[in-house]
């Protein structure tokens, strides 16, 4: 297995702000990698370093086997980038921008361009000034997706798309993956991440806090258990993985870490289980936990 992106210990400061603080990121060739984190956590900065637009203060980064700073021009021919906030030239039409960016990248597939314009329902004749945010993003998406490249760097590419276009976008990214392309997808839309991403990295305050497959990450979350028992519970409180235990006579509810689930259930059965509901862990909880910790800091 080869890696398309390999970043370790990346540090980038702007004046007194430490935007990246030892960030690690590994994206394997051919995977769709979700890149998550609260606003201002350093996702866009990481992508800009990978594009050679910013020079990292320390740490190492390698992209498609090259150095993103020194080999920028060569590498850029093999990748396409969609910024989170797309600015277009006010007097160029969308079609002109798509062609321009495609040509600067080394050519684009005409048939695919036409196909994408239709699927995204984008009028290429409008001038840059007159597009809405969603339509500006579509222009950048069509330009990127119609290019024949190995790697797509997408920085919150669907934040302005309506639900219909969101599903078109997801289809397109799935097709890219099926063609063997690598995608780094920064996103806040959990459904999108769940349906598209093979692996995800969550960053906070310029550091990577979790990385792995979705299944592995789910494992890190807690299951919520509510049970009615024959006798008041015994010994639950002392179990390591049990949190937020609430006992109301025979009623009990608590959260339990996935790897302590077995021990917790065993402790419950000692008191005679009359009814039991369990809520499976959701990614949302995981993300919320990481995002909220950021707020608490």
């Amino acid at each position: 297995m080869t890696t398309a992106i390999s970043v370790s210990g990346l540090v980038k400061t702007f004046g007194r702000t430490r935007a990246l603080d030892g960030l690690d990121l590994t994206v394997r060739t051919g995977e769709v990698h979700g890149f998550l984190g609260p606003n201002g956590s350093g996702k866009s900065t990481t992508i800009r370093v990978l594009l050679g637009l910013l020079k990292a203060d320390s740490g190492s980064a390698s992209l498609l086997g090259g150095d993103p700073w020194a080999d920028a021009t060569e590498l850029h021919r093999r990748l396409a980038y969609v910024p989170g906030d797309v600015s277009l030239w006010p007097n160029l039409s969308g079609g002109e921008v798509i062609d321009l960016l495609g040509r600067l990248r080394g050519g684009l597939d005409k048939r695919r361009r036409a196909d994408l314009l239709e699927r995204f329902d984008l009028d290429p004749r409008k001038k840059g000034r007159t597009y809405s945010k969603g339509n500006r993003q579509k222009v950048a998406l069509v330009a990127a997706l119609a290019s024949d490249v190995e790697l797509l760097l997408l920085d919150e590419p669907s934040s302005g798309l309506d639900p219909l276009m969101e599903s078109v976008f997801q289809e397109c990214v799935a097709e890219e993956r099926d063609r063997g392309r690598t995608v780094l997808l920064s996103s806040h839309i959990l459904a999108e991440v769940e349906s598209l991403c093979d692996r995800v990295s969550i960053i906070r305050a310029g550091r990577t806090v979790e990385t792995g497959t979705l299944a592995e990450l789910r494992h890190l979350t807690r299951t919520t258990i509510t049970a009615e028992l024959a006798t008041p519970p015994n010994g639950l409180a002392s179990l390591a993985g049990v949190h937020d235990l609430k006992v109301n006579d025979h009623q009990v509810s608590f959260d339990v870490d996935s790897h302590e689930l077995d021990a917790a259930l065993r402790a419950l059965t000692l008191s005679g289980v009359r009814s039991l509901t369990s809520q499976p862990p959701t990614l949302e909880e995981l993300f919320m936990r990481h995002y909220q910790e950021d707020v608490a800091r």
Partner: peptide, 9 residues
């Protein structure tokens, strides 16, 4: 930025 992210120096 989008232009400098393509294959131009």
């Amino acid at each position: 930025e989008p232009v400098l992210a393509t294959g131009v120096s």
